[in-house]
Structures are given as C-alpha cells and as structure tokens.
Amino acid sequence: MKTKLLSLAVAAAILSTGTASADQLEDIKARGTLICGTLGTAEPFSFADPQTRQIVGYDIDLCQAIADDLGVKMEAKPISVEARIPELVQGRIDIVAGNLGYTPERAEQIDYTTSYFVSLQKLLVKEGSAFDTIDSLAESRISAPKGSSSERYVREVLPQASLLTFQDPPSAFLALAQSKVDAMILSEINAEKFIAQTGESFRFVEQPVAEEYWGLGVRKNEEAFLQQVNVTLKRLEDSGEGEAIFDKWLGQETVYKLSKPFKFDTPVSDPVLRPAL
C-alpha cells in the first residue's frame, strides 16, 4: 500500500512538473511579470544609464515590447555571460536577451527565437590602404582576439594569412593602428566603437567574413511562449517598430552608425561564412 501511494505521488509530481513546463506562457501572465535576463554591462544592448542607473538598451526595449504584447510588466535581471543558459534552464528567468549567438551546442539545451540581431564579422583596414576585398588580404597579416570566433573565421576563410592573436579586442585594434598588421577582424559593432573613440581613419572591407545570428533564448518545450515571442518579433519587423529600436541604439545617429542587416522573423542558424572572392 505504501509503495502504491509512493508511486502515485511520484506520478503526480511528474505530471505537475510537465504541466508547469508546458504552461510557462500562462504562468508569466498569472505572475504579471516577464523576467528578462540581460548582461547589463554590454552597451548598447543592456547597460546602466549613468543618469538614472536603470538598465537600458536595445535588449531592454525588445523585452519591453514582448512584455507589452503579453500585457505584463518587464523585469530586467542582470546575469553574467556564463550564467545565461543555467539561469534560463533552472527557471530563474523567463527569457535571455544577452548577445546569445547561435551554436548547435546551445540549441541542444535551449530554444532560440527568430533573429533579433546579426553580428557581422568584418575586416578593418586603414584608410588609403589597397585592400578592398577579402581575397586581397589572402596573404596579409591580420590581428584577432585570441580564442574568439573572429579568429576561427579568419583561419577558415583565409588559411594563408598570417594571423596574430591578442588577449583582447583593444590590443588587436592597437596592432592595426600601429601598422603591425594589415587588417583586424572583429564584429562590426565593436570595431565601430574603437573607430569613434580614436578618431583615426579606418574603413571596413565591405564584404563580411561571417554573419553570426543572435536569438532570444527560451526554455525547451515551451512552444506557446516561443511562438508568442516570435509573433512579437514579426510584429516589430512588419510595423517598422523594430527598425526604430535598432536605429535608436545602433543606427546612423549613434557612434555605431549601423544599418539593420536582417529581419526579425529570420530563423537563427549556424554562422554564415563568406568565402574569399
């Protein structure tokens, strides 16, 4: 009898857990709050406003749009890069908006929404140099942050190039500024910030070496919630509100001077590598 009761209790617990997992969308609505995990230190995506000390940014505005469509409040919870997936899987946050590039390994642990940002990995050269295509740098000296995806992309696309790696992006950029290398590879958004800070003359090789797709992360098997977030992203794309948010934080009037190179309703995928011409 005791064994039977124990078995019934275990079965009830399993059913209860399954129901809670399947009803995350309803749970969020019942709670009245969407908990959005963000880095909080990654300008312009999520960072502390120096005047108000509130977390603001591109990620925050997107989370707010999702919360608005759900009819709930939005709570931004700062998390570290390493904690993005554990915090989500363990249920301490509802969604991750934190520079979460797509990888097959991550996709085994979480589900991705459609794209909300595409990071273009580009080669940066000095103004006036003769390099204007990826192919023209095939046997040149190129700097990259050590252990970065940027380094991996150069090794794959320009295997004959002399690659010099540095501990961090500023050091890789300094090597280019001091003409120790012919080019540097980095995400366009980070490179633009370096250019703005130094005031020196640099330009990009127009063709990206790679495109990294970023999605918002949600827990596995939460189809209703995932679908609702994707509905919001498509609404933002179709209405133009998404482009307005992009321009506010990343557009031509900002230090990044970017144009939106993607659509919010595009599925995330492996990075797209551009072969040399």
Rank of each mutant, 00 (worst) to 15 (best):
F264G: 02
A224V: 06
E26R: 12
L88Y: 02
K122F: 06
D23H: 13
K4L: 15
E151N: 03
T41A: 09
G147N: 08
E241M: 04
D69S: 15
P169V: 07
D49I: 07
S148V: 07
K122R: 14
S201C: 01
Q121Y: 11
T254F: 07
F117G: 01
I93A: 09
Q167G: 04
V272A: 11
K73C: 01
I189W: 14
Q90K: 12
L88D: 10
A97K: 00
A144T: 09
E43Q: 14
V118S: 08
F194M: 13
G40V: 06
Q64N: 13
E87N: 09
V218G: 05
M184D: 07
G57D: 03
A191R: 06
V89K: 14
D135E: 15
Q197D: 15
V118C: 04
L163V: 09
Y213D: 00
L277V: 10
S136F: 03
A13K: 01
D68K: 15
T52G: 00
T266H: 06
A244Y: 03
E82N: 13
V125L: 05
I134S: 04
F47E: 05
P170T: 09
A83D: 15
A130N: 12
A12D: 02
T254G: 02
I134T: 11
V81W: 09
T114Q: 11
D135M: 12
E222F: 05
S129Y: 03
L186E: 15
S259Q: 14
L124R: 02
P261L: 08
Q51N: 14
A191H: 06
F194I: 01
A22R: 09
A107M: 06
R53Q: 15
S239I: 02
E26T: 13
T113E: 02
E151W: 02
E156G: 00
T38L: 07
I245A: 05
S187I: 12
S136M: 08
A161I: 01
R274A: 09
D182Y: 01
I55N: 03
V209L: 15
S129D: 08
A42R: 10
A9R: 04
R31H: 11
A244W: 01
K234N: 10
A97R: 00
E192G: 04
R92D: 11
A144M: 01
I185V: 15
Y116T: 03
D182N: 14
S129R: 09
E75C: 01
S119N: 12
N230P: 07
T232D: 04
P169W: 04
V205S: 10
Q167E: 13
K146W: 04
I55Q: 07
T38D: 10
F45L: 04
V56Q: 12
A107N: 15
V209P: 02
T19Q: 11
W214Q: 14
T165F: 09
I35N: 10
A65K: 10
A65I: 02
P159Q: 03
D94H: 07
L176R: 05
D182H: 10
